[in-house]
Amino acid sequence: MSTFSEVGNLKNVTNFGTLISFATGYGATYAPSNTAILLTALNTKKTTAEADLEILKDTEIPLNKQRGIRKALFEPLRPLSTRMLSALEASGAKQETIANAKTIHRKLQGSRAPGAPKTIIDGKDNPDTISVSQQSYDRQADFLQEFIKLLEEETQYNPTETELTTASLNTYQQQLYAINQVVKDAYTPYSNAQITLYQTLYTPETGLVELAYTTKKYIKAAFGARSPQYAQVSGIKFTRPKK
């Protein structure tokens, strides 16, 4: 599916309503032979598009709520990783174990060794796809699990701070996994709503935008390129999504 913006979608639907208003004002002189651009058909398409926009908005609200919860839950991860590493270094663990821990820690911090790909958490999601950001959240939870397993295998690691114990860390890590799944589950209806709206607006020949262009062409043909009627609608803009 091509990229398209919420602003562009809303503007297309709003401008479609303006186009219909002008066409309605022409009365009986607006009489296309193409049934797809009869006023009844145009109004039906407008109603469908408005309903699709509303559904998209309704599904975005819970998605954004869960994204906010996830962002807050992941917020302590980086400083926690630093404390985990420091606790391991202070425990008397072997240097090889500490070196492996530092590698995982770098991944959790979003930093990298020379030549390694950078891992980020930016708190954002591309609404059109399963984003790089989402994958990053998944990876961060996986990195934490990897770090915990390393600590569990190190007999010297036995911190007195409750939040640094492997039991507490495992509980936190499971919370991260859980919220990632919650966000994915909330994303599904939002993504489906996007698909439906996209089809309503941009399907070739039958989509709202194509019907708008066809309607403008009919008005140009019916009243003339220099007519005041065509002057009313010629400047009404409709945009197609970028491919």
Rank of each mutant, 00 (worst) to 15 (best):
Q66D: 15
Q135V: 15
A225D: 11
Q66L: 14
A28S: 15
L39S: 06
T14L: 09
A222K: 06
K65L: 14
T44V: 10
T119P: 01
Q134C: 14
A222S: 09
T200W: 05
K57Y: 08
G224H: 06
H105L: 06
L56A: 13
A113Q: 10
R240W: 02
Y213Q: 12
D185E: 12
F22I: 04
L150W: 00
Q199T: 14
R67C: 15
F4S: 07
K71D: 15
L201W: 01
L144Q: 04
R240L: 04
G207Y: 08
Y172M: 11
K11N: 14
G8H: 09
A99F: 03
G110V: 00
N15Q: 00
R112N: 10
L56I: 10
R240I: 01
T162A: 13
N34K: 11
N15P: 00
I37Y: 01
S86R: 10
D125W: 11
I148L: 08
Q229A: 04
P79H: 07
N12P: 07
Q145H: 11
P228V: 08
T24D: 02
A23Q: 08
G17K: 03
A116W: 03
A116R: 05
N126V: 09
Q135H: 15
A113I: 06
F4M: 07
T188M: 12
Q181H: 05
L73A: 14
T103C: 06
S86I: 10
Y190R: 11
T162L: 12
R240Y: 02
A193N: 03
L211Y: 00
G110E: 00
N180Y: 05
E50T: 06
A28W: 08
I120W: 05
Y202C: 06
T162M: 11
S33M: 10
Q66W: 14
G115C: 02
D52R: 13
A49T: 07
T188A: 15
A221C: 04
R139V: 15
L53K: 01
L164A: 04
Y177Q: 06
N64V: 13
S33V: 11
Q174W: 03
G27T: 03
Q145N: 13
Y213L: 13
S168R: 05
Q66N: 15
T29H: 09
L88N: 01
I179F: 02
I121A: 10
F238L: 07
Y218Q: 11
N126L: 04
P189T: 04
I20E: 00
N15T: 00
I120L: 10
V7W: 12
Y137R: 14
F16A: 01
Y230H: 12
N170P: 01
L39A: 07
N170H: 05
S21H: 01
P127M: 08
N126W: 03
